[in-house]
Design a protein around this nucleic acid. Structure first.
Length: 821
RNA sequence: GCUGCGGUGGCGGAAUGGUAGACGCAAUGGACUCAAAAUCCAUCGAUCGCAAGGUCAUGAGAGUUCGAGUCUCUCCCGCAGCACCA
């Protein structure tokens, strides 16, 4: 008789043994085995593991363990993304040091993580706040600075006059005030440390074709980067100034009836352009209010278009030679394209809306294909349909149509197709075919304390210099009052000031900003490979052994930011010869969220938070893990917690344990068959992240085994396929079955498909496509045998009498469909 | 508005174009018990029928097919991201 299933005791025992034996440490690369680098996003040490962490780490552990059991040397590392604002806020609130708070949390969470029983490669761990880690974060920054990838640029920030500092978007309330001071937030252009991610935009899009990610994730990145192909075309103003516009439709150049500058456009600082007389005040007022407008307001497409005409100037359309007016309007953005557009109201909705309001001419230059193809060709005006009337209207400047088609009113290009005309028109006016992107450069400077100090010092002349390698890590000073006072906390450090002057000389000053934490997480997967390397971020040898990451599991919220930043970082390192791969992640899976029992996002205020520690204490880590895996496919969808459901999973494991009492000398053939089917199914399901159906198949097997007996050999095979899901319980059973080595050193069984073949199958019989009954036949029975089986079934036979058999469709093992006349 | 994903019992979900609802939960009835819990057995989409069996069912409507949850088109709804992007 087996012992009572005391999950707490069993788990505690095996965790201690595993830790002692170091069974999950990776050590040196074993070249006799293929490698598999399974990565999960490292957590922020908030102080407590929540269910989301369990979902993110325990379920992929099934995958990692399966890979391990199928002969791979698996790297499944874990660490902490430990810099960031919450530590600073918690420290202010409790009057602690952010470092102490962070390190205490990490120690506590590490214990919680160990109680999961995952096969984490703890010998490879690291964390972003470790000086050995951020030394290399800083060093990479200096390399990027030298290459011009990291640069001092200008960015727009949310400035709070009350706090006298820049604040993050999430600290700005819906009404545009600061959550701390309540003051109105202003937009202010400030010097910022930036990364030139835009230089990599094309590669970041094009290299997506080389990775095996799900298409929806690739598409999200493409959308985020937002590449538009088009042309830059110069328009000359009456003042002689040149305005470069970007357009995706250079083929409509002849239809450009006015020009629009963004309120931020640099030419507006020229008085000749702004105008000097009555118009000046209007322009100034408009520009001032538009540039101070809240971004939300300005981007509100439902609002009516606004703008002001620049009376002092006109522009010349380089294709038609026509003189056209110039406007300033905030529907054109300073930060996108060239900050100026040619307006073609006949073929663009926004231009049309603006032109209608300001009574500007609308000139149709394209007969859109869509309209022509649907038009009734007739000479009788009474028979003309809606489309041809529409066509007539829009040719006359009423309405717009954005589609491609045949050019008209376009000089020598008349009759040409839109696509064909693009390059030709651009060539004629001396423009340039080019792309523009929605993606902006990455601002990485933060006026915060708890982060990686930017390793830059300024000479007395104010010139930026890197902190050379021998002075790295450029240590975060501790003599800092990090309470918010409006000045970057590091500016208050005497130690940092002193250190800078001692090393670089009198009058030299340190940079006082720290880095965005997205920088830390842009390369952590490299440090795991070689976490003790003192001479570099990670040796090329270690990278050759382990990169690229074979499988990257993470949250859907990181699809664009983290995934894009780290891909960029990798490419920038690749160009410097510091890494071996230009794409870090071969495969990616996004998981969803675990919701509260009420179906809502878990939150303290809703009182629907499920505490994993309490669940583990109640039913054990194996049960919590399997329950999470059983909820549904591991994909980008969310599932509500169900206390009944987890109890069901616990019952399943108790039955698995209880099967010890069913071990016998023989077992039914049906059980052997089901076992081998299950072995095959579990393996393929794991690789497709369908843990739920894998578990379901194992439940079916256990239900069957309970009804009779199971041989010890079969039970052992079953225990081995369950091992990745329930590492503690299976280890316990394995030992009780008399083994002295770990079940986790076993291989994943290979199904013997000759034992999995069914002797008979029940298939449906349809008459004229409707299910009328079923027959039991051999899976490979011939059509004749199937029809004989129908003869033996009186009910089916009777139904067949209603007509004559015209056609038989027989799919062996699936369906028999009899078509009657 | 655009892009992506989805819509199947009371719930989570299952289903290479081939018997829709596997598996689990919840529920109901029964056994055991003084009782309850636990456990075990049975039932469990709707509807008609004493039954055998029939009819209707995968958001709505059409289409392709011997056969559609699955493929195509139109529409409705939900979720997520982005949004005056030239």
């Amino acid at each position: 008789m087996h012992k009572k299933f005391d999950s707490g005791e069993i788990e505690k025992k095996w965790q201690a043994i595993w830790k002692e034996s170091g069974i999950y440490n990776v050590g040196e690369r074993d070249l006799t085995k293929p490698k598999s680098y399974v990565l999960v996003e490292w957590p922020y040490p908030s102080g407590n593991l929540h269910i989301g962490h369990w979902y993110a780490f325990a379920v992929p552990d099934i995958y990692a363990r399966y890979k391990r059991m199928t002969g791979h040397q698996v790297l499944y590392p874990m660490g902490f993304d430990a810099f960031g604002l919450p530590a600073e806020n918690a420290a202010i609130k409790r009057n602690l040091n952010p470092k102490d708070w962070t390190y205490e949390n990490m120690a506590f969470m590490r214990e919680q993580l160990e109680r999961m029983g995952n096969m984490f490669s703890w010998d490879k761990t690291t964390n972003s706040t470790d000086q050995d880690y951020y030394k290399w974060t800083q060093w990479m920054f200096t390399q990027f600075f030298e290459k011009g990838i990291a640069y001092r640029g200008k960015g727009i920030v949310n400035w709070c006059p009350g706090c006298n500092t820049a604040v993050a978007n999430e600290q700005v309330l819906a009404d545009g005030t600061c959550e701390r001071s309540g003051d109105m937030i202003e937009k202010r252009e400030m010097p910022q440390w930036m990364m030139k991610i835009t230089d990599y935009a094309d590669r970041l899009i094009d290299d997506l074709d080389t990775v095996a990610w799900p298409e929806h994730i690739k598409e999200a990145q493409r959308q985020w980067i937002g590449r538009s192909k088009g042309a830059k075309i110069n328009f000359t103003l009456s003042t002689g100034d040149v305005v470069t516009v970007f357009t995706t439709r250079p083929d409509t150049l002849f239809g450009a009836t006015y020009l629009v500058l963004a309120p931020e456009h640099p030419l507006l600082s020229k008085s000749e352009v702004r105008g000097e007389t009555s118009n000046l005040a209007d322009v100034d007022v408009y520009v001032k209010s538009a540039t101070q407008k809240d971004e939300q307001d300005r981007l509100d497409a439902t609002k009516e278009k606004t703008g002001v005409k620049l009376d002092a100037v006109f522009a010349t359309n380089p294709a038609s030679g026509e003189q056209i007016p110039v406007y300033v309007a905030d529907y054109v953005l300073g930060g996108y394209g060239t900050g100026a557009i040619m307006a073609v109201p006949a073929h663009d909705e926004r231009d049309y809306a603006f032109a209608t309001k300001f009574e500007l001419p609308v000139k149709c230059v394209t007969l859109a294909r869509e309209i022509i193809s649907q038009m009734n060709i007739t000479t009788n005006p009474n028979e003309r349909d809606g489309y041809s009337i529409l066509l007539e209207k829009y040719k006359n400047g009423e309405g717009f149509h954005p589609g491609y088609g045949t050019l008209i009113n376009s000089g020598e290009f008349d009759g040409m197709d839109s696509e064909e005309a693009q390059e030709k028109i651009v060539a004629k006016v001396g423009g340039e075919m080019t792309s523009t992107y929605r993606l902006r450069d990455w601002s990485i400077g933060r006026q915060r304390y708890w982060g990686v100090p930017i390793p830059i010092v300024y000479s007395p002349e104010g010139e930026a210099h890197i902190v050379p390698k021998e002075h790295l890590p450029w240590v975060l000073p501790e003599d800092v009052d990090f309470k918010p006072t409006g000045v970057a906390p590091l500016a208050k450090s005497e130690a940092l000031k002193k250190r800078t002057e001692e090393i670089f000389g009198a009058g030299w000053t340190p940079e006082v900003e720290t880095m965005d934490t997205f920088v830390d997480s842009s390369w952590y997967f490299l440090r795991y490979l070689d976490n003790k390397n003192e001479g570099g971020l990670a040796s090329l040898e270690a990278q050759k052994e382990w990169m690229p990451i074979d499988m990257y599991f993470g949250g859907a919220e990181h699809t664009t930011m983290h995934l894009l930043y780290s891909r960029f970082w990798q490419k920038a390192l690749f160009d410097l010869g510091l890494v071996t791969e230009s794409e870090p992640y071969k495969q990616r899976v996004n998981h969803g969220m675990i919701l509260g029992p009420d179906g809502n996002k878990m939150s303290k205020s809703k009182g629907n938070v499920v505490d994993p520690d309490a669940q583990v204490a109640l039913v054990g880590a194996d049960t919590v893990k399997i329950y999470l895996a059983f909820m549904g496919p591991y994909a980008d969808s969310s599932y509500p917690w169900d206390f009944g459901g987890i109890a069901g999973v616990r019952r399943f494991l108790e039955r698995v344990y209880g099967l010890v009492d069913h071990i016998g000398d023989s077992e039914p053939t049906e059980l052997t068959r089901q076992l081998h089917k299950t072995i095959a199914k579990v393996g393929t399901d794991i690789l497709e992240f369908k843990y739920n159906t894998a578990i379901s198949a194992m439940m079916i097997l256990v239900n069957l085994a309970e009804k009779g007996s199971i041989t010890k050999a079969s039970y052992e095979l079953f225990v081995r396929i369950l091992a990745p899901f329930a590492p503690h319980l299976t280890e316990e059973i394995w030992t009780q079955l008399g083994h002295t080595s770990s079940v986790h050193a076993e291989t994943f069984p290979v199904a013997d498909m000759t034992l999995a073949i069914d002797e008979t199958v029940v298939i449906g019989v349809q008459i004229n496509g409707k299910l009328r009954g079923n027959i039991t036949i051999a899976p490979d029975a011939t059509e004749g045998e199937a029809l004989n089986a129908v003869q033996d079934n009186p009910l089916l036979q009777e139904k067949l009498l209603s007509g004559t058999l015209k056609k038989v469709i027989y799919v062996p093992g699936r369906i028999l469909n009899l078509l009657l006349q």
